[in-house]
């Protein structure tokens, strides 16, 4: 079976900094994959390369077997790649409902009226229904993070890229978020989730990749990966000795 997303030897430098260095990975259709690594390890750059916000200097990006290395971001979204930003980018002067409509109408390639039902349903599922008519610029940080996910869902993605969506949440909110993500995953959407809140991550994903200095440090069963000495040292700052 072809992987849904495949990165082949991808590199990206910003000036003298190698944010991504000869990086390869695969995501199977229907899989939930977790990504961890220290700050500045190149996790968000990897997302930007997958979504087309950043073009790699070398390597290939494939989606469902098709080379999309040169495809623009909006086309990749229409193919089924949805993403939420680590730092929310709301359409501040549009309402929450309209924010979803943008994704639904353009990412989902539908007429506007055909999106209302979906958007209404997603607002309910992500707990934003009460805020439907609020301007997105007036939302709290947590609501903005939910909006990021809701908007990406509205594009009817085959894979959802979540970038540190649980950071700053209370324990209770975090549990609710994990449930939401599990539900999305059950409906057949593949997940790639970058997260520092490891316990939340581990309750969803079935495979874990650890990135350090733009390279893959470890990969495999989440609990085994977390237990490995290498990861403990680099990621948790615990000495291997």
């Amino acid at each position: 079976m072809t992987a849904l997303i495949a990165l082949e030897g991808v590199s990206k430098s910003f000036g003298s900094v190698r944010a991504t260095d000869q990086f390869s990975m695969e995501l199977e259709d229907g899989e939930a994959l977790g990504v961890i690594g220290p700050n500045g390890a190149g996790k968000s750059t990897m997302f930007n390369i997958i979504t087309g916000a950043v073009r790699p200097n070398a390597g290939r990006v494939l989606f469902a077997g098709r080379d999309i290395t040169r495809a623009p971001a909006h086309e990749r979204c229409r193919m089924g790649i949805g993403r939420s930003y680590q730092i929310p980018h709301p359409f501040a002067n549009m309402t929450v409902f309209e924010n979803l409509l943008v994704g639904a109408a353009f990412g989902g390639n539908r007429s506007e009226a055909a999106c209302y039902e979906d958007c209404h349903e997603i607002l309910g599922r992500t707990g934003l229904l009460e805020k439907a008519n609020a301007l997105a610029g007036a939302l709290t940080l947590l609501e903005r993070k939910r909006l990021e996910m809701a908007r990406a869902l509205a594009t009817r993605p085959r894979v959802l890229l979540l970038d540190e969506i649980a950071g700053g949440l209370t324990e209770h909110e975090c549990v609710a978020l994990v449930e939401t993500i599990k539900t999305i995953h059950r409906t057949g959407v593949s997940i790639v989730w970058i997260e520092h809140v490891v316990h939340a991550l581990l309750s969803v994903v079935s495979r874990l990749i650890v990135i350090n200095f733009g390279q893959k440090l470890a990969e495999g069963d989440p609990h085994q990966v977390m237990a490995s000495a290498e990861v403990q040292e680099v990621y948790m700052g615990i000495s291997a000795e």
């Binding site: 623009p72 229409r78 980018h89 501040a92 309209e98 943008v102 353009f106 990412g107």
Partner: peptide, 26 residues
């Protein structure tokens, strides 16, 4: 008021987000 209006107001507010949501900015 049309569907294109959604794209235009989205581009006005954030070009990065609009392209990642399927809007062809160019």
């Amino acid at each position: 008021r049309s569907r294109h209006g959604l794209a235009l107001t989205a581009i006005r507010d954030s070009e990065e987000a609009s392209s990642s949501l399927g809007v062809d900015n160019f």
